[in-house]
Amino acid sequence: MCTNLPAPPAHQSRPVSGVPAATLGGRRAHRNGAAPGTRRQGLPRPLPAGQDGRRAAASRPTDQHAAGAAALAREVARWITTAPSRRGLHAAEGLRRLLEHCPELDRTHDLVRQFAAMLDARDAAPLPDWLEQLTTARLPALAGLAKAIRENQPAVVQGITTPFSSGVNEGRITDLKLQKRIMAGRAGVPLLRHRVILMALLRRRYP
């Protein structure tokens, strides 16, 4: 199944010659009073020159694999949620090849486009049947989404059938969080307030 990606292999470090593996991972050291002629436990020998760099380099492929997989997942999600008429040639071809090799992703794409059609037409009549398709898709994530929508279905129906949206409020909240993270520990509330007001003004001029 394309939804079950293999986990990257765990990195196994080589033990330093003459030092047990348990000693290398220990953090507690025996204090004064150790028997003469014995080494203090918990303190590994200094690594040979360049070995730290080799270990760091050996661990990089795992990090790069995880980062690459996350970036690819975000890109594919953007392809799926973008209307077919607005997809570029690269996105359309890449998505087509993915859907051919992954039935689960193909099913998900079909359900996403059905919901987008409901939003475009502002017609919530197909919603119950769509929720049933989510439940029977045999994909746990989609079944959980169907359960969450059913718990608040009247609000979802209003969101589909009316022109009102909380998107503006969500955008302002995103702007506020972004400024807060940028300025964390660097400035006080007065400057934060000034920047938030300025950003709101720019949003009005350049929507």
Rank of each mutant, 00 (worst) to 15 (best):
L139M: 14
D120E: 15
R27I: 12
G33H: 04
P44T: 08
R31G: 15
C102L: 02
H101P: 00
R39F: 01
L119T: 08
R55E: 15
T108W: 03
G94D: 05
A7G: 01
R39C: 00
P9T: 06
A124W: 03
P44K: 07
R86K: 14
A10T: 14
N32Y: 10
V112C: 07
L142E: 03
A58W: 06
W130F: 10
G50R: 11
T136Q: 12
G42C: 10
R87C: 02
S17E: 07
A117D: 15
A91N: 00
T62H: 10
L47Y: 06
H11E: 13
T38A: 04
H11D: 11
A35H: 13
H65W: 09
L99R: 08
A71P: 04
C102H: 02
A22C: 09
A22G: 10
L5G: 06
P84W: 02
P8K: 00
G88Q: 04
A71D: 11
Q12S: 09
A125Q: 12
E132L: 13
R138Y: 11
D106S: 15
G144H: 14
P6A: 05
L95P: 01
T81H: 03
L24P: 00
A83Q: 10
R54A: 15
L95M: 02
A141E: 13
A121L: 14
D129G: 15
G68M: 08
T136A: 14
S13C: 08
A10F: 05
R150H: 01
A57L: 13
L127N: 09
L119H: 09
L95N: 02
R138K: 13
P48F: 07
R45F: 05
T135L: 09
V16I: 01
A21N: 02
G50W: 12
S13T: 14
A57I: 05
A117K: 11
G42D: 10
L131T: 04
A34N: 13
T38N: 00
V76E: 05
V112G: 00
D63Y: 02
V16P: 00
P36Y: 10
P44V: 08
Q51V: 12
V16L: 12
L99E: 07
E104C: 03
H65A: 12
A148P: 00
A137S: 15
A69I: 09
L145E: 02
S59C: 15
A124H: 03
D63R: 13
R122P: 02
C102S: 09
A148I: 00
A124C: 06
P128I: 13
P9N: 02
G37E: 08
A83L: 11
A7C: 00
L43Y: 06
L24T: 11
T62E: 13
E104A: 14
G50D: 14
R150L: 08
D52H: 15
R60P: 00
P48N: 09
R96W: 00
R97P: 01
L127V: 12
R97H: 07
R40H: 10
K147Q: 06
E100H: 07
G144V: 07
G94Y: 03
R14N: 01
T81Y: 01
G144M: 10
L89K: 10
A148W: 01
P15R: 08
A49T: 13
R60H: 07
V76R: 06
V19M: 03
D52C: 12
I80F: 02
R45M: 03
P9C: 05
L95C: 03
L43C: 11
